[in-house]
Design a protein around this nucleic acid. Structure first.
Lengths: 329, 329
DNA sequence: TTGTATGCGTTATCAG
DNA sequence: CTGATAACGCATACAA
């Protein structure tokens, strides 16, 4: 295996000089820098990650923790975008990522988990979709052991950054757009469960809209479940003009129930899943750039790992009607 | 950070002895073994992966290469199961995995790719869904640099194992089951593209069925595209009794086209995607256990890495009709 | 600006 | 069966 040693010999300089060039140290003359870089190219040299992390005891890998529910496979579309966004971004940042699933954290003790992460040379974690059911993960974050970026949860701190879209505004916007130009004056809002941190923000969004436009608002909790959304729709839809849901899957459930009830109500969802293109009528939804969010989370993690203070990052979103034509290929 | 050194001190033995216990060497007395294990537990010791791979120059990580097409997000469900199956299985095998996307391989030279993998201490690769468009990846496999397990491609060799279901039989079975008990005597088969290695097997399956049952068979190539499947359906469906598709997305396209044409034909797909539950009528499909396949691939990779000879592994499948009730939660 | 020397935590070799 | 010790490839404090 070609090592930094070979590069040094090839370039006619010392090992430490090669190391300095590789790590962009100042105080290296352009001339030697060129020599080293030529040698690197010539030998197709790539530094050994293990040796690197062992030597500089600064863990540089980032654990990307995915919250994959066994139940809704259709949400895997989101997780996949988180993963690919994080991995691609990490590569361009020169970092390594390690994909983990949140159930792995839940099935072991905090100490074990920390040890495991340490052992893997992990210096920071990115949590994709944190919710209140992830107790161990929460404890891990609060332990302050690793700088952390959480997606979709309102936690910031000295070493914690949060990143998400403006859920309140997005929920407001999508509902507002849906009823714009219509005479619909009452809304059935099917909220997510208390387990989700986004639930409250979205709820505030729809409440603000109702107050502002003087709409009659009924709020029910669908727990992000398509089935429960159907039940709620069946019971309340006849008395309301429009249905606003805190997730696409609930919107799909509502729409299917409406079809079965043979009444029409405009329905909006949240997230922009492809399956929306197959679920019947066109529905409004909030489309998030999950891949971009993960990429940004990765950048933020690097920032934190280099000592920066935690902060809150708000990402853009856009409203969309996902049609079959958008999805088909 | 607690190291093997601390364990040695705590247990009152030498560092090398601890190492031996940790790696299940023979020739260690039960007594010292116990002492060491107690110390390990007491100190919550976990070996440092970087140091380990640096020292024992045997690369032990496995690269899991995902073929994620930007186009069909609904297929991410499959990739996600590959990933979680591989990661979970790896953990229980004591291996580390590194998730990569195939486009990463396509955008760099073979030498670069090999160097990169080496640097990551990767000792084997698992390719999830190899197809003929992945030229660089193919070159990498053929270079013989790493023992490889390919999913869904018929390659075996000294250091290459393949793993997949019996595509031929599965295609035969699902079509056979669909027309069983009916008087349907002619089939429109919408095949996958030549880029997919499974295409030929599935084609042989439907051909065998047609021959055996003396069915009239028309084969068209839909290139795994829902849109193309629609076009084909529109043109040929009126003249055939049933439509058999080499993928779920094509089946969905066919079914939607049929609905638009206002004629009915039984349709079958292949893979068992959740979206099938939303795509209209119940369709037959072949359900694969992608997570289990990835787990098996992982085990096989370990086998190869420890010197075993490549082989072909056939996984079970089952026929299913995915209904909305199966999918909803 | 460049080179020398030491250590990171583990494994493996070999002597006891 | 156990212990000392030399690598592994790189980073870094320090010397030149």
């Amino acid at each position: 295996m070609t090592s930094i040693r070979d590069v040094a010999r090839e370039a006619g300089v010392a090992i430490s000089t090669v190391s300095k060039v590789l790590n962009n140290y100042p105080n290296v003359s352009q001339e030697t820098k060129d020599k080293v870089e030529d040698a690197v190219r010539k030998l197709h040299f790539v530094p050994n990650a293990a040796a690197s992390t062992l030597s500089s005891k600064q863990p540089d890998r980032v654990a990307v923790i995915i919250n994959s529910s066994e139940t809704s496979r259709l949400r895997d579309e989101i997780n996949m975008q988180y993963i690919s966004g994080a991995i691609t971004s990490a590569r361009s940042l020169g970092t390594d990522v390690c994909v983990l699933f949140s159930y792995m954290a839940e099935s072991r003790s905090l100490e074990e988990m920390i040890q495991y992460l340490r052992t893997q040379n992990i210096g920071g974690i990115v949590v994709c979709t944190l919710d209140r059911t992830q107790l161990k993960l929460m404890a891990l974050i609060e332990s302050g052991t690793f700088p952390t970026v959480v997606i979709d949860a309102p936690f910031t701190g000295e070493r914690i950054s949060s990143i998400s879209i403006d859920n309140r505004q997005a929920q407001y916007d999508v509902a507002s757009k849906m009823i714009a130009g219509t005479s619909r004056r009452s809304i059935l809002y099917i909220a997510g469960g208390d387990e989700g941190y986004v639930t409250e923000d979205r709820l505030n969004g729809i409440r603000a809209l109702a107050r502002e436009k003087k709409l009659r608002l009924m709020v029910r909790n669908g727990h992000f479940s398509e089935k429960q959304a159907r039940t709620i729709t069946k019971k309340y839809a006849p008395d309301y003009d429009a249905i606003v849901c805190a997730s696409d899957m609930m919107a799909i459930g509502a729409m299917r129930e409406l079809i079965e009830m043979d009444i029409f109500r405009p329905v909006s969802g949240f997230d922009g899943l492809s399956v929306m293109g197959y679920a019947g009528k066109q529905m409004f939804t909030v489309k998030q750039d999950f891949s971009g969010i993960a990429a940004e989370a990765m950048r933020e993690e690097k920032r934190l790992m280099s000592g920066a203070h935690g902060r809150k990052i708000v990402m853009p979103y856009r409203l969309a009607r996902i049609t079959y034509e958008d999805v088909i290929e």
